[in-house]
Amino acid sequence: MSANAPIRSLTPPDIRARKGGDKLACLTAYTTPMARLADKHCDIVLVGDSLGMVVHGLPNTLGVTLDMMLLHGRAVMRGAERALVVVDLPFGAYEAGPTQAFAAAARLMAETGCGAVKLEGGAEMAPTVAFLTQRGIPVMAHVGLVPQRVQSFGGYKVQGRGPDGMRVAEDARAMAQAGAFAIVLEKVVEPLAREITAMLDVPTIGIGASPACDGQILVMDDILGIFTDFQPKFVKRYAELGTAAEAAIAAYAQEVRDGRFPAAEHCFAERPGEPRTR
């Protein structure tokens, strides 16, 4: 392949074909610079509605709007070349029925150029997923703990324990049968996530689920140690950039107050003989 040949982006069929094969590495991104970093190493970059909490300081994802997803989706697409970019459908943009969901999903894909959308819910959303996929909208499903319904769950609770396991398994099965090309399993007890992964013919993407899942996803700011207000058990920090950034900001502020910044090397000299204008 020529060094100047265009990079081919991964597609939903590419992701589906990875079932049982090489693990899928997935991360969220909300900005162009972070998308560029993730794109070098990840198979899927998710523009998650977690941006409401991580970027906009909201208490949960419920206040995220379709316009917010469009804004960040376009930003991420400017930084992604190889990875499949998936954009979340926000709360209130698809629950009323398939027609509402199609309008929102079609707008996301048309105005951002993303490769797929993601929606939360179980068997009750299967007709909507089928409606979308039959009309050319690739859908990643999200079952188990679905943050948009955290109020009805009574908090960010582990899913699939005891009798509840049947419900989670049926939700995953229904989404696969409806045409979802991959399914996120969030905060699902490990043995059940392993069983669901073995049961389905589409990839599972775990977040607080099981190493047996076909892939894993985490929030970029969590693994970098930037967003620290909410730290789930399933997050592993690979850096402490928040601490490093605060130290850098403190050093800058102190140097400004001490008169040590800017120094001569940060300033511009006049050219010899250059007249000044008054």
Rank of each mutant, 00 (worst) to 15 (best):
I205H: 10
L185R: 07
T128P: 09
P90V: 01
G113D: 15
A198P: 03
P90K: 12
Y156M: 04
A180K: 08
D171G: 02
G121I: 12
A103L: 14
L119V: 00
I205Y: 12
R194N: 06
G160K: 06
P163C: 02
S210G: 14
V158C: 02
E124T: 11
G122K: 09
A123W: 00
F153N: 00
S210L: 12
I137H: 09
Q177S: 04
L218A: 01
Q151T: 03
D164E: 11
M140N: 07
A180H: 01
E195D: 15
I196R: 02
A193Y: 11
F102G: 03
T128D: 08
Q216H: 14
A180I: 03
L108W: 10
E95D: 14
E190L: 13
G179C: 00
H142C: 08
Y156P: 00
Q216I: 00
R161T: 03
G206N: 06
A104H: 13
A101V: 05
A141S: 12
A105L: 12
R107T: 13
R173E: 10
Q216T: 00
A130K: 13
M199V: 02
V146M: 02
V202T: 05
G179D: 01
V150M: 03
E190M: 14
I217A: 04
V143Q: 08
A93W: 00
D201P: 04
F181L: 09
L119E: 01
P147W: 03
E95S: 05
L200N: 03
V184R: 09
C213G: 05
Q134I: 06
A178G: 02
T133M: 07
G136H: 13
G122Q: 08
Q216Y: 14
L200V: 05
V143C: 10
V202W: 00
R194V: 08
A172D: 04
V158N: 03
F102N: 07
A172F: 09
I217D: 08
A172Q: 03
G179K: 01
E111D: 13
Q100P: 07
V219E: 09
A110F: 14
F153Y: 02
R135M: 03
A126W: 12
Q134D: 12
Y156S: 02
F181I: 12
P90R: 02
D201Y: 04
E111C: 04
G208Q: 15
L200S: 06
L192D: 11
F153V: 00
T99L: 15
D201E: 14
A193E: 09
P127Q: 08
Q216E: 10
V189T: 07
A104R: 14
A104P: 05
